[in-house]
Design a protein around this nucleic acid. Structure first.
Lengths: 203, 203
DNA sequence: CCAAGTTGTTATCGAATGATTACTTCGGAC
DNA sequence: GTCCGAAGTAATCATTCGATAACAACTTGG
């Protein structure tokens, strides 16, 4: 053993490596969108070589599908743990749970971007399925009315847009921008601002 | 003059050609996103050669920026013409105006996708500016309250998601999907369904 | 201890894409 | 008519990217 460090990634069970790559891929896909991301960037972020990423997931599209499915599962998981407690607080708690996912890199952007990929023959069905599953959860498990569900989902989409636009970085620079953020995160603007990247940070 | 037709595009003033390309580019960018679209596809859709598209706009990014700016201007134009009339009908008329833009290929998807590009150093500022200008218009010109503005914009983002997901093609196939659409287009589901592409149509 | 499956890498390929260059053709002013 | 700027194309280049192939090193059951 010489002074130079190992150049190869430390051995790991494939299942763990998969999860590690999924986490990295979520961040990169979230920052640069599906088409804008190269498998090499994902590999680099995960600390492995590009061909290994391809081999573990078969294809870039399949990797992205795994990322989306994981993200939607994560969302529903968060919503589930926000359910218990007084019904009248449910909406606020679930909204906070969604905003809390901002702390996990790429989670919200991946969800947001997936809603633009309905036209892709492979990814479209998965994206539609994920969105529908969230709607169903909010409606059936959380027991929202149809109108409450629509408003809740619409708020989520607005948050996605605000995040994607990197509006948080512009908080305070212009009246309308500040107002958008105050309207989106009624009682959590400052906490959210800590999570969020500046305008041209790669995130 | 022999039997074969002209292979070259008919001569046109550069300004007109620009507008024609912008219209085609809106459709293509809307269908395949910014990174997913090639300048060659835009050129084909516009009936000109690929180098000419590049020469007229300088760069793919600049072309896309022109597309975004045109789309936001179009939206605000539609909202303006929906303003006159009884105040209590304003919200419904403006909502209908937005849904009506579905008839123009790529218009809504381009807007939706632009909200994901805030991180791009060139495109980000334009996307933020467009979004903020719409918010300002709704708030100041249309005179909505802050809460009304938030709800209105959120509804728009939900519509964007539903369009991007190609959920309309799945209307009637599943209870939750049908409900999503009914909730998004309270009194216009059938009219909207005519506009919208099927799940894996290129649009 | 060693054989075999698992984990991972380096090298490389073919296709696609944005951009540049150099050339051709139209149309209108004089 | 003719000349010159504007409109447009074909050919081509340098990169980039996803995927494949071939190979190397670890680890584990018997």
């Amino acid at each position: 053993m010489s002074v130079d460090e190992v150049q190869t990634a430390p051995r790991m069970k494939a299942a763990d490596r998969r999860e590690l790559i999924l986490e990295a891929a979520t961040a990169v896909f979230g920052a640069k969108s599906y088409v804008g991301t190269t498998t090499d960037e994902v590999a680099h972020a995960a600390g492995v070589s590009q061909p290994y990423v391809v081999r573990l997931f078969g294809t870039k599209a399949k990797l992205y599908i795994a990322v989306i499915e994981r993200a939607y599962a994560r969302i529903i998981g968060e919503f589930e743990s926000a359910l218990p407690g007084p019904v009248e607080e449910r909406r606020r708690r679930m909204g906070a749970a969604y905003a809390g996912l901002l702390a996990e890199r790429g989670m919200l952007p991946v969800i947001a971007n997936s809603t633009a990929l309905g036209g892709d023959p492979e990814i479209g069905p998965v994206a539609r399925g994920g969105f529908a599953s969230v709607w169903r959860f909010v409606r059936d498990e959380a027991g929202f009315t149809e109108e409450e569900t629509r408003d809740f989902m619409a708020s989520g989409m607005l948050i996605n847009a605000v995040v994607g636009l990197r509006l948080v970085g512009a908080y305070g620079t212009e009246a309308s921008v500040t107002e958008v953020l105050d309207a989106c995160f009624p009682d959590a603007v400052n906490r959210v601002r800590e999570f969020m990247p500046a305008a041209d940070e790669p995130w």
